[in-house]
């Protein structure tokens, strides 16, 4: 088990290094880092001096080394657009994004798995047809349109919920939360639903497909032939086997929620990392772009690791494989 996790950790480090390398390339070669730092009337000497000071004259690998060391300490330089340290910008906005992502992940997971199992077990029911059709519409609706639609109905017409922002927030240490105030919670509802819908349909369709696949296997037929109750078959045997592949893909889907929040945050003017990123892309604010890339990769790697460990717990075949040193 430990060897298995150690191996996965190694792979994660490699992935992070590759992403850091791409981020470094973006950081170093897109646009001119100096042009943004120095004033319009800087002299050639100023340029040379700045080059020397920032280490831009050093060999490529030394620069990359410094980039990685800085990144490990959370240093990604200063935003061209906002003239603030990137790490500070991201940390300030992180709580908003994480609260949104977690809330919508829970919605997507709970409803996605439930509806997936339901539609797989009741394959011929009318309700299944309705749910499947709705899910297809859900996949075809761009997230931003869902957001606009929800705003129009619940904020503009019904005036039940706020249409933008986080509402009142409370500062706990460096974490600024909107979960403890009524207006904060009300503000979370529409963005969380918007963000969850796409993942929800994906998870639902995946669970349904896997479950139907499992229900067709020999061991389910054999379980039937042994006269087990359909409850034991569906929820004991089938569901657990369904979970093996579902865990991976679902985990990765939820990881992507963080990055997917870009759109939702823009529609609802949610002050998170995603909207920061979109504004940075529009303004070619390279340090923020590079830092965001590394940040998303980190989230991906962590979730991947959790998924691997879960997998390990669920599937006995893997445990044996790891024991024999594979």
């Amino acid at each position: 088990m430990l060897a298995f996790i150690a191996r996965r950790l190694m792979q994660s480090v490699i992935v992070m290094l590759v992403v850091a390398f791409i981020a470094f390339l973006v950081f170093r070669y897109v646009g001119d880092p100096l042009a943004n730092l120095l004033s319009q009337d800087a002299t050639m000497a100023d340029y040379e001096e700045a080059r020397e000071r920032l280490g831009l004259n050093q060999p490529f690998y030394v620069q990359f080394y410094h980039f990685v060391v800085n990144a490990l300490q959370g240093q990604f330089g200063v935003s061209y657009r906002l003239q603030q340290p990137v790490s500070q910008l991201i940390l300030e906005r992180l709580p908003a994004t994480i609260e949104l992502a977690v809330a919508s992940s829970i919605i997507a997971l709970v409803f996605g798995v439930f509806l997936g199992v339901y539609t797989a077990l009741k394959q011929r029911a009318f309700s299944t047809g309705v749910i499947m059709t709705l899910s297809l519409i859900g996949v075809s609706l761009p997230t931003f349109l869902i957001g606009i639609g929800l705003i129009y109905v619940f904020a503009v017409e019904l005036k039940w919920l706020p249409s933008f922002g986080r509402g009142e927030v409370i500062q706990i240490g460096w974490w600024r939360t909107g979960l403890l105030t009524q207006s904060g919670l009300r503000s979370l509802i529409l963005p969380a639903i918007t963000l969850s819908l796409f993942q929800l349909t994906l998870i639902m369709r995946l669970v349904r497909a896997e479950m139907m696949e499992v229900l067709r296997t020999d061991y389910i037929r054999f379980a039937r032939a042994r006269g087990l109750s359909s409850r034991a078959i569906n929820f004991g045997h089938a569901l657990k086997n369904t979970m093996v592949p579902v865990i991976t893909i679902t985990g990765l889907q939820l990881g992507s929620v963080i990055a997917f929040a870009i759109i939702t945050e823009t529609v609802f003017q949610w002050p998170g990392v995603g909207s920061l990123f979109v504004n940075s892309v529009a303004a070619v604010d390279v340090p923020v772009m590079a830092a965001y890339l590394v940040f998303v990769a980190l989230v991906f790697v962590i979730i991947n690791l959790i998924v691997d460990i879960l997998y390990f717990i669920v599937d006995p075949r893997l445990r044996d494989g790891a024991k024999s040193g594979r």
Binding site: S256, A259, V286
Partner: peptide
Amino acid sequence: LSFPAILIALLIFGVARGI
């Protein structure tokens, strides 16, 4: 695949703008 396509596209777009 674990990154949403929209993020990749945004990044490539941003890089291209810089170049």
